[in-house]
C-alpha cells in the first residue's frame, strides 16, 4: 500500500494504517533525531513525539508534499525545540553506546576506524543545528535540495549553500582535531626527549 493510501486511511481515523507508516519511517526519524540531539534516549523520545504530533495533525496534512518530507519537518521542529529548551546542542554522544566497532578485518584497523568515527561525531556535535540537519538529510536520508528546502524552509539554493558550508565546517573541525592530536603527540614526544635531571 502506498503512502498516500495509508495517509488517507489514517486521516479517516485508521490507527493501524498510521502504525504501518510508523513502521516504515521509524528508523529514519530516529536516525535524524539521534544525529540532531546526540543522545539515544532523547532521540527515541523525540521520534515518538514526532510520530504523535503527526498523528494528531494528520488531518491537516494536504497531500501536496510527500508524507516523508512532512514527517521530517515535524521531527526537525521537535529537535529544534528540544535543543532550544536545553540551550545547548546536546550531551556528548556516548561512543560505547553507539557501538563504533565496525567490521574491520584486524583489531588495529578496527581501533583506527573507531577513532575516526569518534572524531567525526565530535565534529558533528560542534556544527550548528541547521547545518547538522542539512548534512543528515542530504547524506544519510538522501533528500534532494528541493526536499531539504521543504523540510527546513527557504529555497533549494539556500539548502545547497548550507550543505556546502556544513561540509567545509565539518572538514575544518576534523582537521583541527587532527592538528590538535598531532600537536599533543609531538609535545609528548618532545617532552619525552627532554632529559630529566
Amino acid at each position: 500500500m502506498t503512502d498516500a493510501q495509508l495517509v488517507s486511511r489514517a486521516q479517516a481515523g485508521d490507527l493501524p494504517a498510521f502504525e504501518e507508516l510508523v513502521q516504515k519511517y521509524q528508523r529514519e526519524i530516529y536516525g535524524l533525531a539521534c544525529r540532531m540531539v546526540s543522545d539515544m534516549e532523547e532521540a527515541k523520545d523525540l521520534a515518538q513525539q514526532a510520530f504523535l504530533q503527526a498523528f494528531v495533525h494528520i488531518r491537516s496534512f494536504r497531500q501536496d508534499a510527500q508524507f516523508r518530507t512532512w514527517l521530517f519537518r515535524i521531527a526537525i521542529n521537535q529537535c529544534y525545540n528540544f535543543l532550544k529548551s536545553r540551550k545547548k546542542f546536546g550531551d556528548p554522544l556516548d561512543c560505547d553506546e553507539l557501538n563504533l566497532a565496525g567490521d574491520e578485518p584486524s583489531p588495529e584497523a578496527d581501533l583506527l576506524a573507531q577513532e575516526q568515527r569518534r572524531r567525526l561525531y565530535e565534529a558533528l556535535e560542534r556544527l550548528p543545528a541547521k547545518q547538522r540537519a542539512v548534512i543528515t538529510l542530504k547524506v544519510e536520508q538522501g533528500l534532494s535540495y528541493e526536499e531539504i528546502s521543504q523540510v527546513l524552509g527557504g529555497t533549494a539554493g539556500a539548502a545547497r549553500v548550507n550543505y556546502c558550508q556544513a561540509l567545509k565546517t565539518l572538514k575544518k573541525h576534523i582537521q583541527t582535531e587532527d592538528d590538535h592530536e598531532v600537536a599533543m603527540r609531538s609535545s609528548k614526544t618532545v617532552a619525552s626527549r627532554v632529559p630529566r635531571r
Binding site: Q23, Y30, G31, C34, L98, V139, I174
Partner: peptide, 25 residues
C-alpha cells in the same frame, strides 16, 4: 568528509529497542 559520514551511520538499535518503541508509541 562525505565518505566518512556515509561510513558512520547511526547504528541501528536492537530489535528489542524497536519493540519497546512500538509499544510505547
Amino acid at each position: 568528509v562525505i565518505a566518512a559520514l556515509e561510513a558512520a551511520p547511526v547504528p541501528d538499535p536492537a530489535p528489542e529497542f524497536w519493540g519497546e518503541f512500538s509499544r510505547d508509541l
